[in-house]
């Protein structure tokens, strides 16, 4: 028999909020890459502006968590969920910041001629977004095994990052005039690599919710 219906309803609402925030930062990430690919400066401006909404949502969730701790004294798995949420929203806000960073680079690049068609960078973005979505599913479903698997996929992101880095280095070595443009793209790839690292943090929190243990499950190469 459920005896703390109101409390558990609020806790479920917070978990819905987490999904909403996840969807906001996923969208920001994919739109920032789209803006970069299509040189759509207006879209890039939107991503930058929308980051404020991401931050707002994060604070809103944080306040709800603090309120539940203060008024409901959560215990055991309820407590672990709230502690995990507080950490996960920080990671998601940072993913939002990385998307904003990419959008700002897109604005910086403006209408300069493209250095090369973007292939690996969008691939990194797609995979990061997919990992994020699945990590949040794992959080909602309390699926530690899925979280561990997703975390291991960070290696692929690191490999793609290496590939992008090496390729752009070749451009710069061959023609120093490309250095500025190539460096900017390295920044983009770096932002995505960091976002994927944040996803592994989220996965660690999923494992914590399930097992009660804080453990590092996927140490990034970078």
């Amino acid at each position: 028999m459920e005896t703390r219906t109101a409390f558990h309803k609020k806790l479920r609402e917070i978990q819905d909020d987490i999904l909403a925030l996840g969807s906001m930062v996923s969208k920001a990430t994919s739109r920032s890459i789209e803006a970069l690919k299509k040189r759509d400066l207006e879209l890039a401006q939107h991503v930058v502006a929308d980051d404020k909404k991401v931050n707002q949502k994060r604070y809103e969730i944080e306040e709800k968590c603090v309120e539940l701790i203060a008024t409901q004294q959560p215990m055991a798995s309820d407590l672990r969920i709230i502690v995990a949420v507080l950490s996960i929203i920080t990671d998601m806000e940072r993913i939002g910041d990385h998307a904003e960073g990419i959008a700002k680079i897109a604005i910086m690049i403006g209408d300069e001629p493209p250095l090369k068609p973007l292939i690996d960078i969008p691939r990194m973005a797609e995979q990061t977004i997919d990992m994020l979505r699945r990590s949040l599913d794992a959080f909602i479903n309390h699926d530690a095994e899925a979280a561990r698997k997703i975390s291991a996929e960070d290696d692929t992101i690191d490999q793609l990052y290496d590939q992008v880095f090496r390729e752009l280095l070749t451009f710069m070595a061959e023609d120093p005039k490309t250095i500025t443009r190539a460096t900017r793209l390295i920044w983009v790839a770096h932002n995505l690599e960091r976002s994927a690292d944040r996803v592994t943090n989220i996965c660690e929190r999923v494992v914590f919710v399930v097992t009660g243990k804080m453990e590092e499950i996927g140490a990034s190469k970078y």
Binding site: M1, E2, T3, R4, F7, H8, P74, M75, A76, S77, D78
Partner: peptide, 11 residues
Amino acid sequence: RTEDYITGRFG
């Protein structure tokens, strides 16, 4: 059972 009790899922 401990989990259920201390999180108010029964009792």
